[in-house]
Design a protein around this nucleic acid. Sequence first.
DNA 1: TCTTAATTGCAACTCGTTTGCATGTATCAC
DNA 2: GTGATACATGCAAACGAGTTGCAATTAAGA
Lengths: 137, 137
Amino acid sequence: MKHLIAGLRAEGRRLTRPRKAILDVLEKSKYPLSAADVHARLKREQVAVDLVTVYRTLGVLKELGLVAQVELGEGQFRYETRHGREHHHHIRCRGCGRIADLMLCPLKKLTALVERETRFTVEEHSLEFFGWCPKCR
Amino acid sequence: MKHLIAGLRAEGRRLTRPRKAILDVLEKSKYPLSAADVHARLKREQVAVDLVTVYRTLGVLKELGLVAQVELGEGQFRYETRHGREHHHHIRCRGCGRIADLMLCPLKKLTALVERETRFTVEEHSLEFFGWCPKCR
DNA sequence: TCTTAATTGCAACTCGTTTGCATGTATCAC
DNA sequence: GTGATACATGCAAACGAGTTGCAATTAAGA
Ligand SMILES: [Mn+2]
Ligand SMILES: [Mn+2]
Ligand SMILES: [Zn+2]
Ligand SMILES: [Zn+2]
């Protein structure tokens, strides 16, 4: 929560109940959540927050660098907290949709190569795996 | 076009003008196209095909394994032909949206590791880079 | 406590994608 | 070639994720 307050302050933004609650939901989740997921979990916890506010808050948290946006071939975005978590990637089951973390990243060296080859400046990358979990195989 | 015919036949599907035209558009493009892109290019070539048909055809071509679906953080899908092209990845500029191919894949070894660690069977992966191209830097 | 700008909720909207259904046509048996 | 038939298409409507406008609310600082 410390990071949240600092980040908000730095931009003249405010610490509100929805923002705390949304970050809290993300920190408790073991896998990245969609806006609708976050909204559903807030409702379950009796925290009344509009879905629009969830979207706006996820945007703010992303800008502040507190959450990462993840795309897993679903036609929607998911979000996960970055606080206290290493940079990592995911694998998603084509059967049940289960998502697991992959606490690894083989791309440090490759990034330099990509920058040399393309003349782009690399700012970020996404690496996701898709397959079948043991139950769905 | 040979592959297309074979693929369609194998499933009791038909070879139609829209399907040929759409595959043709994809084969001519140097970067992956959205459904709307494909539709616009068809119109420019005076080929009258409904956008819905573009979506349905892209779905069929994907099922047949003739095109790959790519997600580049835009909130939409892009498609590119797989015919005669090696498995590869992309980099997209955060300024102008330019997309370049990265004709490389460092993930053969890693896939085996991922399968061992997660007990998933890996079927596919996505690896995309985001950054700034020389003009936008 | 008061002021003010940031934030929220609600409704309406945009945009990418999908679905239902009547019409059109590629394919195949004759 | 003709006809029968299942597959494909176009159009309209629906859907779902995400965005925007605006009036009402509230956090933050004086
Ligand atoms: Mn994760
Ligand atoms: Mn490509
Ligand atoms: Zn990485
Ligand atoms: Zn690869």
